[in-house]
Design a binder for these strands. Structure first.
Lengths: 210, 210
DNA sequence: ACTAGATGTAAACGTTTGCTGACTTAGCCA
DNA sequence: TGGCTAAGTCAGCAAACGTTTACATCTAGT
């Protein structure tokens, strides 16, 4: 459904961040989105309750239904945000800088970290619509990654390259989850510097620079 | 009434021999275990209901509490079974055959497949005890994997090797999940032969044969 | 200043969840 | 056979879930 909540009238007094309104639909929406992304990424969809999210955001539960129609709608919004972020990374990164970019994503364990957006991508919601969004995000990201190493759609024999790009993506997501969600040591406490070397080896082995 | 040993120790899953006891605690336990492993791996812990599991196993719900105390107890039992299986693979495999072994695990997409046991390892239950078991399984498996490439506990500078082994494990689990749970194409329909090559490159890059 | 609509609140709805206790039935031995 | 115990069934509880409804309060435009 394209159920759009009452459009947050942010058009007024644009570019006025200093003046924080006490009632700001756009800000409330964003608070919910941030809280939900963290919860969904860390605990999974089913284990996360809408009351948890609302409490984290410091906001009333009913506003989830108001702004995102339902819990599923909120999850889909999180997926889209994570997909945009990921595509931005894999898209506008020079081919030889991909391992560093992935390492930066994975290493960022902060509360609002990019790592949680990676973990989000393998949390299933049980909702068919969300699954489709997630697949689309992953397909596009892996295609961008493969393209950076010479893959062209439909080219014979290039299926192998796409497969290898997807495995590299899977590896990155796996590392992100074992770090943030499972908290496996010493992987969990490794720094970005610790990760970038092995990741470079990994990516270069799967996708040889051409 | 033909006398039958009290515990037939049934090993088969589907094959229904004519002489199946109508009341067999050991078999019922195993039916529940198999059904639970599949459900937990595919849908996650929180999204799986005990009624779902019982229905899949063709067994009454109350028997879960009887045989496994609780839903969490059943999950922990699944985790232990998956851990034994994984440790058996990483443990008694020659160092240079590790990629093949991992590929075999990942490629097995059957209903009672080994792949689902890999996916199980990154499903969180929200239970502290289960999380500890999972961490233990992953730590031991990664140590075995690292040891096969020369890692020795406590040796200075070998932390790097363990880290790389955990990343290889993470990569394998990530691939398994994207294949079975997310169903990402073409990764999902790749055969064992398709996977073993890239996996060999991946493992060798992370853990150079010494 | 007044009002209409946007924004937020509180409480409850109906459903589903994991789990339990009392019950019935099958299997086995004396 | 009779009877005792293991194995399985059944109905239902209390809590938690997502969602909705009715209401209160703030903000913006006139």
């Amino acid at each position: 459904m394209t159920a759009e909540p009452p459009v947050p009238a942010t058009g007024d007094t644009a570019g006025e961040p200093a003046q924080r309104r006490r009632r700001d639909a756009a800000e409330t929406r964003q608070l919910l989105l941030d809280a939900a992304r963290q919860r969904f990424a860390r605990d999974g969809y089913a284990a996360t309750t809408v009351r948890d999210i609302a409490d984290d955001a410091g906001v009333n539960v009913a506003l989830i239904s108001r702004y995102f129609t339902s819990k599923e709608g909120l999850f889909e919004a999180c997926l889209r945000a994570a997909g945009d972020e990921l595509r931005r990374t894999t898209g506008q990164t020079p081919a030889d800088r991909v391992p560093e970019a992935i390492a930066r994503h994975i290493a960022d364990l902060g509360a609002a970290g990019l790592s949680s957006q990676l973990s989000l991508l393998l949390r299933s919601s049980g909702d068919a619509g969300a699954d489709e969004i997630r697949r689309g995000v992953l397909v596009r990201s892996s295609e961008q990654l493969a393209a950076a190493r010479g893959w062209r759609p439909g080219e014979p024999g290039s299926e192998q390259l796409l497969l290898r790009a997807q495995m590299a993506l899977a590896a990155g997501i796996g590392v992100a989850v074992l770090r943030s969600s499972i908290q496996l040591q010493p992987l969990s406490s490794a720094t970005e510097q610790d990760l970038v070397g092995p990741l470079r080896d990994l990516v270069d082995a799967l996708l040889p620079p051409h």
